[in-house]
């Protein structure tokens, strides 16, 4: 039984068909790559999986739960984390605040009466967890700066940390290495590898940097014009002639 199963997902924007009858699954603990040319519908798929967009047709199940009618925050609490292609940080917060608020939110706590009794501050336990994730990502030294002062690379790491601290069982990563230099990408790939192996987190990775893809995933899916044109072990798919024409040909 797959951890995530999306079947028959379609989504149109006016005349543009972003996804058509797409089906895709991710097993628990598996790392899957999702590549495709610009506008193929990768980000749209993420948005449909998380409920940020409502697909026109199709169903999504996660760990046996039917997600179709579930709001975004409940899907997140079930254990789906994500990062964004165009970075989405909480302005005015430090990196540490990002993690602390995420740690609080995933448990669904947030009653105002606790705030009124002055019991809303982060607990020691939350502080410890946040510190652990910060050091896993190697951003402890910038943890207390406002995020506006961070570089794009650090910004992406903060996003990743914010997703990781919720201990997702599935991590959706939307071009995490874009805007990063080679060293930063390598470090990122290493972190992802550790997360996947040590925590058993499944990863669905959208990425244009094929080196990064090969490094991180074992299975590769190729999307073109909203349809899956290949799905299989990374090496096989990379060798597929259709794929080379549709995607790699364009990338070279």
């Amino acid at each position: 039984m797959a951890l995530l199963r999306a079947s028959g997902i379609s989504k149109r924007f006016g005349g543009v068909v972003a996804l058509s009858e797409l089906s895709i699954g991710v097993e628990a603990g598996e790392a899957v790559g999702l590549v495709g040319p610009n506008g193929a519908g990768k980000t749209t798929l993420f948005n449909c999986l998380l409920g940020i967009l409502r697909p026109d047709t199709g169903t999504v199940t996660f760990d046996g739960h039917d997600l179709s009618r579930m709001p975004v925050y409940r899907r997140a609490r079930l254990g789906i984390g994500r990062t964004f292609q165009r970075i989405e940080l909480f302005t005015e917060m430090t990196a540490r605040d990002h993690l602390l608020v995420a740690e609080r939110a995933r448990r669904g706590n947030g009653a105002m009466w606790k705030d009124l009794l002055n019991r809303g501050d982060p607990t020691t336990d939350e502080q410890v967890r946040a510190a652990a994730v910060l050091s896993l990502l190697g951003i402890d030294d910038v943890a207390d700066l406002p995020v506006e002062a961070l570089s794009l690379g650090h910004g992406r790491l903060v996003e990743l940390g914010r997703a990781l601290i919720t201990e997702p069982r599935l991590l959706l990563l939307d071009e995490p290495s874009s805007g990063l230099d080679r060293m930063e990408s390598l470090a990122l790939a290493q972190v992802l590898g550790r997360v996947q192996q040590e925590r058993g987190t499944a990863i669905l990775l959208v990425e244009h940097d094929l080196e990064m893809v090969e490094r991180c995933v074992t299975r590769l899916c190729v999307l073109e014009l909203g349809q899956l044109i290949a799905d299989g072990p990374t090496a096989t798919v990379m060798g597929d002639a259709n794929v080379r024409r549709a995607y790699l040909g364009e990338a070279v």
Binding site: E88, F90, N109, L116, N118
Partner: peptide
Amino acid sequence: LVRKGTVGRYLSAMRGSQVAAETIGI
């Protein structure tokens, strides 16, 4: 108290980015 408490921090997150706030479970 509310501003520095959980509700205030959730709201601060939401004004920074509503989608991101939802995807961490707010």
